[in-house]
Amino acid sequence: MKIRYLLALGVIAFVSCRKSPDLGQLSVAFAVQTSKQPDANFSSYKTYYISDTIALRTTDPKDTLWFDDNAKQLVDAVKMNMNSRGYTLVETNHSSPDLGLGLTAIKDLNVGVIYPGWWWGYWGGCYWGYCGYPPYYPWYGGGGIVYSIPTGTIILDMIDLKNAGENQKLYVPWGSVMSGGLGYTNDDIQLGVQAIDQSFTQSPYIQSN
């Protein structure tokens, strides 16, 4: 009987023994996750286009675009990095750019396991002038699934428009998911800019030459 009591107490002791982590030391900087297609050839593209507006996904269905000065700072960060890698910005989406860059921000919305492309919100619709083309994404993590897209996330997609017609799909040679506190802190736009810079820093293979 004594042994039974001891084992029962042991189980209780062991279950209660896991410590709660000390998260006070974690920084507020965005976690930056980039992924590329294994066969991507970045030097085959020369021009790109990015809109000055950012697609917004929130709990408010009317809230679909973000186009204030803060949004512009994020877009400008993408332009600066693309230009520095030798790509040329074209004036409009109708100027036949080789690449389409798309920024999406997810605010006030928590989502569980989702598949890349979910944030386009385009399934069956039109995106970059192409209707009904499925997106073809690089793998995030090991399974092609981004495990969670929590509130405050910025997503940057690079889409191959040069070969979209021929491929019959919107091939995404590279993408970045930046998870942070967008909407939580006063300096979050600056943190977002740093996250975009970091996306390119950890992807040195993005070069037009």
Binding site: V32, Q33, T34, Y140
Partner: peptide, 18 residues
């Protein structure tokens, strides 16, 4: 904060973490 490159070279993650 540091960058972890995936072994196949097709991805990377940058963050500090516990």
């Amino acid at each position: 904060r540091q960058t972890f490159q995936k072994p196949d070279g097709n991805g990377a993650v940058t963050s500090d973490f516990v």
